[in-house]
Each structure stands twice: as structure tokens, then as C-alpha cells.
Amino acid sequence: MSKQTLFGALLVSSLCGGAALAQTTVIDVISPARCTPTAGRLTRCSIPTQTLTGTDFMTAVPMRTVVQRSLSGNCSTQYPLEVTLTPTGGSATRYTFLSSPSVVLRGLDRQLLTSIELKDSSAWTPTASFVDTCRISLNIDWNQVDVDSAPQAQTLIQDLQADVTTKTLQRDNLEALLDFSTAYNFMGELSNRFYAELTTETMMDLRAKSMDTSNVLLKVAITCEQPAGTPPELLLTDADRELLNQLFFNLGTLGGPGDYTKPDGSLKTVRDFLGDEAKVVIDKLAGRSTPAVRAQYQAQYQAAALAVVAAQQKLDLARVQLAPWLTP
């Protein structure tokens, strides 16, 4: 027995906590039980239609099921006996078992096979006659790893690793989107509170007074002459004038009351204050941060996170299943 065959048998028996066992089904096709013994001959043979069942188990790699003919005694005959093997959901395979020692069956996308219909598809079975020493059976070796070389095994591992990488990127992107949605709402609330503080009645009154007094402040700051009789402690120094200049220019950053109110006198919102171009961007971002959208992001993220776990588990299982080809 080859290393791959031995390992495959041990692997299947260990998968799913021992629930899956290496399995071979033996089907008797030519024997005294299937034919009528007459004068040292086996005649009028019959192969009944039957459904064969294989064990289901987890697999991360493609599978194939091999049907091998087992023959003993003198089974010489001129008739091409044949059975048809049809996996559930798959295509039929005709197997002329006297002339072919084996045939390989694969399910759709080389998935695990758990059911095969075996049917006699030769019109010559009742006519054929054999020496009574003839015994023919079909051995169905279920679900072997469908790999023949190390490069094939390595390609499977690379594909599964790429799938993990892709799913991880999708999960991380959804996590970033969810974080952005949460952060946008936080920043929106923060900016609204900050804007509310900037537009209180006191702040609006300060803006109005700063506009009314700005010219006076500028005049004082740049005038060199000072009224006669000013006490020495009240005389403006050059440092005082520098501070007054700074205050004058800084008052400009407050803006005027009209910057924060609409033509009807009502207070602008943050969106109104930032302008029409900003409104388009704000509305787009806000649309991606509603409770319903966040719930959708959360559900998508959770599904993506589970997909990463499943992909990694599949990769880990594949490494175990393909170890005979990957290990020198």
C-alpha cells in the first residue's frame, strides 16, 4: 500500500471525531448467488439495480471514488458485460468491467460522493456463461483525495490560502466601514455641540459688539498720541499696542452674526454654514451612517468574520488531508 493510500485511509477514519471511516463497498456481480449453476457452468446471471451509500464527512479538497474489479477463477466470455454507475446529482458512467480493471467516479465539482446507483446496462448478462469457478465483484473505494502529485497538492493549498486572504480583506473592509459609520456619528454629534456653543446668544452678541467696536479698537492700537494728563500707569506701551493689534485681527475670526443666520433670521445648521458643496458630501456620508445601514454593516461584518473562520478551518483541514504530498 502506498504512503498516500495508507494516509488517506487513516485520515478519513479520524475526520469529524471518528464519525467518518475509510469505506469500501463490495458488490457481487458474477457468482453462484447471482447466476444459476448448471453442469459446471454459471448461467442466466442477474445484476440487480441498487443504490450504494457512502459515509459523509468533512473534506477541504476534491474527492474521487474508485471502482475496481476483483476477479478470480476462469471468467472467460465473449460478452462485454457492463454496469452503469450514476452518482446522485452527477452524470452516468458506463463501466465494462471485464475489460477494464477500474474506473474513477467524480461528483459535481469533485465533491464528496455519498450515493451511487449501480445498474446492469448490458443486454448480454442473462446470456453469458462462465465456468463455475468464476467470481467477479466490484469494490467501491469511496472518496479518496483526488490528488496525484505534490504540485497538484500545492496548487490546492495556494488556492485555499488565496481564499483566506480575500475573505480576510473583505472582513477588514467591512470592519473599517462599520468603524467609519460609528465615528461619523460621533464626529457629527461633536461638531453639532461645538457649533451650538459657537452660536449661543452670548456669542452672537459678542460678534455684534466686535463689529461695532473694531474700528475704535484699531484706532487706539495704531494711534501714537495719548490724551494729556493720562496717568503714567494708564499710558499705552508698544507691547500694549501689539496686544491690541492681535485682538483686533483675532476678532475677525468670530465673523458677524449674519454668517450664522439665514435671511429670515433663523439660525443656520452646520450643513447650512458649510455651504451647498459640503451638503452633498455630508448627505452622502450621513446616508451611510443611519441606524439601518449600520445594522446592515454589522450583519455583513459578522457574516464575513464567520467566512474567514470557515476558510481558515478549510485550509487547515486541507493541509492535513494533503500532508502525504506536501511532506517530503
Results as ranks from 00 to 15, higher is better:
residue 127 T to K: 14
residue 79 Y to M: 12
residue 157 I to G: 08
residue 125 T to Y: 02
residue 109 D to I: 06
residue 80 P to Q: 08
residue 165 T to H: 03
residue 79 Y to Q: 14
residue 113 L to S: 00
residue 60 A to V: 04
residue 118 L to R: 04
residue 132 D to A: 11
residue 65 T to H: 12
residue 102 S to V: 12
residue 159 D to M: 08
residue 159 D to N: 10
residue 70 S to T: 11
residue 83 V to T: 06
residue 161 Q to N: 10
residue 97 F to W: 01
residue 119 K to A: 10
residue 137 S to Y: 00
residue 128 A to I: 03
residue 75 C to K: 00
residue 87 P to S: 13
residue 84 T to Q: 05
residue 87 P to V: 13
residue 80 P to D: 08
residue 87 P to A: 13
residue 108 L to V: 15
residue 149 S to E: 07
residue 162 A to E: 08
residue 132 D to F: 07
residue 151 P to T: 01
residue 88 T to Q: 15
residue 58 M to R: 10
residue 144 Q to S: 13
residue 88 T to W: 13
residue 149 S to Q: 08
residue 124 W to L: 11
residue 58 M to P: 10
residue 89 G to S: 11
residue 119 K to C: 06
residue 77 T to V: 07
residue 119 K to Q: 11
residue 144 Q to E: 12
residue 61 V to K: 03
residue 60 A to P: 02
residue 109 D to E: 11
residue 55 T to D: 13
residue 107 G to I: 02
residue 121 S to M: 07
residue 97 F to T: 00
residue 148 D to C: 08
residue 92 A to V: 12
residue 131 V to C: 03
residue 72 S to M: 10
residue 157 I to S: 09
residue 141 D to G: 15
residue 56 D to K: 10
residue 116 I to G: 01
residue 141 D to I: 04
residue 84 T to M: 05
residue 158 Q to M: 07
residue 94 R to D: 11
residue 144 Q to V: 12
residue 107 G to C: 04
residue 105 L to N: 05
residue 153 A to N: 05
residue 146 D to S: 11
residue 97 F to L: 01
